[in-house]
Design a protein around this nucleic acid. Structure first.
Lengths: 157, 157
DNA sequence: TGACTTTTGTTGCGTAATCAACAAAATAAT
DNA sequence: ATTATTTTGTTGATTACGCAACAAAAGTCA
């Protein structure tokens, strides 16, 4: 496989550090303006984009960076806050859906401008269109590679 | 400032997701092989690269993604595990240094191959040299922008 | 059908991180 | 000098998350 080169290592370090700083900044902005935090946003937007604004826990779990139990507990909290609701599935009596409520959609809409501004300001603004395209394409490549390596481990056929 | 474009948003999403997956994978590999986790690694490497292998808490804090108290507690643990030691500063009797121990250096060395392999496999391998260069340059740009915006807020002069 | 196996979401428990409040020392101001 | 301010690292309280064990329902297969 070969050693990690200087180039790769410095790119890696920038990648990590940049990510951390951007996320931290956006999270701070959201908190300052009393908007939902990023993890919550992720859940809400996933539901918002889903048919009927609802998803099974399993599906939701794939879209969100969180463990199974982590998701259960996040949904607990969000349900308490009235942003989503549990709805037990008819077809599969084990399972349940998480459904976006009106309040949830409202909070989603209120958070978006802040979030969007953060993405623009901290992430997009400094880059040229060309750089942004390269960035996206690089991550697409990496992402595909990750998927296939993940697939391999799931199903050793 | 302008809206977030489709391109920007999809790049952003890939960025977030890829980051999460890679970190998760590396963290898993480290855990599987009973090596120190990433946060610990970050502290150890920072000390390793510092003159005399020691740093004041403040300096260390700048290199690591952690709150003040978070760092205190991480150092608590690492000291308990014998990877680093506290050494109270002579010049400034409030402060203290975190010093890398032999054991700490050993663990650092043992973790590196696993970490390096992760960087290669999940991050570097899928990219061409050109793509890697673009990636690095994009992050350099972003990173610089973040710094200067941060500076502005620190010192409104 | 009846006995394994797998999937789905929840729960107990331990760990780690943050914020806010703090004490001690250093620095600045008058 | 004395007082006020800032910096440095720690501590208490709270919150969030992961792992492993679990119960309940589906699915598999003989």
């Amino acid at each position: 496989m070969g050693r990690v080169t200087e180039l790769e290592l410095s790119a890696w370090r920038l990648f990590i550090k940049t990510h951390a700083t951007i996320i931290e900044s956006i999270e701070q902005d959201l908190a300052d303006q009393k908007r939902v935090p990023l993890t919550t946003y992720d859940v809400l937007i996933a539901l918002f984009e889903a048919p009927d604004r609802k998803l099974r826990f399993g599906e939701l779990n794939q879209k969100v960076v969180l463990s199974k139990s982590g998701l259960t507990r996040l949904v607990d909290r969000l349900e308490r806050e009235g942003l989503i609701q549990r709805e037990k599935s008819q077809e599969d009596r084990r399972g349940a859906y998480a459904v976006l409520t009106h309040e949830g959609e409202l909070q989603l809409r209120k958070a978006w401008p802040v979030y969007a501004r953060g993405i623009k300001q901290y992430f997009a603004e400094p880059l040229s269109d060309d750089e942004m395209r390269s960035l996206k394409s690089a991550f697409t490549v990496i992402s595909k590679a990750l998927q296939s390596s993940h697939d391999k481990e799931e199903k050793p056929s």
